[in-house]
């Protein structure tokens, strides 16, 4: 099949970018979208032009490294990751526009590659249960209702790709943050730090410069793992409860 590609090219974070158009006349419908870009890149190298930089790694839809805003949608027309998208989802002769994720908190590194370390920093703010290695109770000591475990798993499936931010007209990261807050709010293991976690992760999210949620549900519609916005509602609950009721306890010093 023949396709025309309009791809965002940008040398570095502080450089000005623009679209460049490429023609490709030997794409196959069985190619994945990223394989099509591989072919384009190898053609470019042979022609002495610098290839297009894009993020990718596992190519089986789980690592969350691939991105790309394709024809106005994160990860393209299907609700899956770009690496799982195949060219048969496009028609012969189509013009495909490829842009990077656009968000203040995701600065462009080069071409289609953006910096998503803001997500890591949000997780570092509280996306964990504070247990050290060893000295934990037996795995079956605390039963977890199957339903709760399943719901926690639904939230835990987030791959951290950032499609929610890319899809949201406000570049809001709430689906991402709420997925982690939800997972731990549901499970008994997450209870001891439940309040602090919600407070800290939301504060970090705001500090990173993500927008506010206006409940358009675009994130949910585009999330390749089908994370639901009920998680955002749960995060909101957790956050308000924490801010309204949680307080510091001053521990007495000494004792050794």
């Amino acid at each position: 099949m023949k396709i025309t590609l309009k791809i965002w090219r940008q040398k570095g974070t502080n450089d000005k970018g623009s679209f460049k158009t490429y023609k490709m006349d030997h794409a196959s419908p069985d190619m994945s979208f990223l394989e099509m870009l591989d072919v384009l890149n190898n053609d470019l190298v042979r022609k002495g032009e610098e290839p297009v930089a894009f993020d990718h790694d596992c190519r089986e839809g789980i690592c969350g490294m691939c991105s790309l805003y394709i024809n106005g949608r994160p990860h393209g027309p299907l609700q899956t990751t770009t690496c799982q998208l195949h060219m048969r989802s496009f028609s012969d002769g189509e013009t495909i526009t490829i842009e990077p994720w656009r968000a203040k908190a995701f600065p462009i590194i080069k071409d289609l590659v953006v910096d998503r370390t803001a997500f890591d920093r949000i997780q570092q703010a509280g996306g964990y249960v504070s247990v050290n290695t060893g000295g934990v109770p037996d795995a079956n000591e605390i039963p977890v209702p199957k339903k709760i475990a399943d719901e926690a798993m639904d939230a835990a499936q987030c791959i951290g790709c950032g499609a929610c931010v890319a899809a949201c007209k406000n570049a809001s990261a709430m689906l991402f943050v709420s997925a982690k807050v939800s997972q731990f709010a549901l499970l008994p293991q997450g209870q001891p730090e439940r309040m602090e976690r919600a407070e800290k992760m939301v504060a970090r999210m705001d500090a990173e410069g993500f927008g506010a949620c206006t409940n358009t549900r675009a994130c949910e519609a585009e999330c390749p793992k089908g994370i639901k916005i009920t998680n955002i509602a749960r995060m909101n609950r957790e956050y308000f409860a924490a801010m309204l009721t949680n307080y510091e306890v001053e521990a007495g010093a000494g004792g050794d």
């Binding site: 106005g72 949608r73 968000a103 995701f106 410069g209 506010a212 358009t216 675009a218």
Partner: peptide
């Protein structure tokens, strides 16, 4: 929210998801 989008907006948005 506008600022959160960053310096450059999208050239195309499909609007199909919301």
């Amino acid at each position: 929210n506008r600022q959160a989008r960053g310096p450059e907006g999208y050239a195309i948005t499909s609007g199909k998801s919301s």
